[in-house]
């Protein structure tokens, strides 16, 4: 490593909000967002399934959009607004989806589930009643090795219908 490259800091300070709460941290620049949440903040709802951006188990929300938590570095989060499954559970934003997942048994081992919920919430946020094909397409970046996906599609379809009809789905 040359002298010039050594002038790049290996730890940086970040200030952000996580689940609505302000967080200040000094992070190793190699630390990805999932490890930051899990190891530094104790938010273990996001799971590291592959750490190369394929499995989707670490999917969560940064600045209003779903992202792969393993494909962002914590160092990039200065000023960001991060929401994890723990936070959206507390706000109730996922309550109808979570209830539908439980009711339909749209999860087995649960390892993919937090990420899957974010992918599901993302298509639901587009409004209307998406087709099963559209739902399948939208969650196709999230591996689930247990369910065979059909129950997940059913649960999302149910919530979309209930939301479109303005119904409350009890949590």
């Amino acid at each position: 490593m040359s002298d010039t490259a050594q002038s790049f800091p290996t730890r940086v300070d970040i200030s952000l909000t996580v689940n609505g709460e302000p967080v200040d941290a000094r992070v190793d620049v190699s630390r990805h967002l999932v490890d930051f949440l899990r190891l530094d903040l104790g938010l273990t709802g996001a799971h590291a399934g592959c750490e190369h951006g394929v499995c989707g188990a670490c999917t969560l929300q940064v600045d209003g959009e779903i992202v792969r938590g393993c494909l962002m570095l914590a160092a990039q989060l200065d000023g960001a607004e991060v929401w994890t499954v723990e936070g959206l559970t507390e706000t109730g934003a996922l309550a109808d989806l979570q209830a539908a997942f439980v009711e339909r048994n749209a999860l087995q081992c649960g390892f993919c589930t937090p990420g899957m919920l974010f992918a599901a919430a993302d298509i639901l946020a587009q409004g209307g009643q998406p087709s099963r094909v559209a739902i399948r397409e939208h969650i196709s970046g999230n591996y689930c090795r247990c369910t065979g996906y059909e129950a997940v599609v059913d649960a999302i379809e149910t919530v979309a219908g209930a939301r479109a009809r303005g119904e409350e789905v009890s949590a």
């Binding site: 790049f8 800091p9 290996t10 620049v29 190699s30 630390r31 750490e51 570095l73």
Partner: peptide
Amino acid sequence: MKAAAAGYIRA
């Protein structure tokens, strides 16, 4: 595996 970045600067 865990990343091994040598440094980081925000432009």
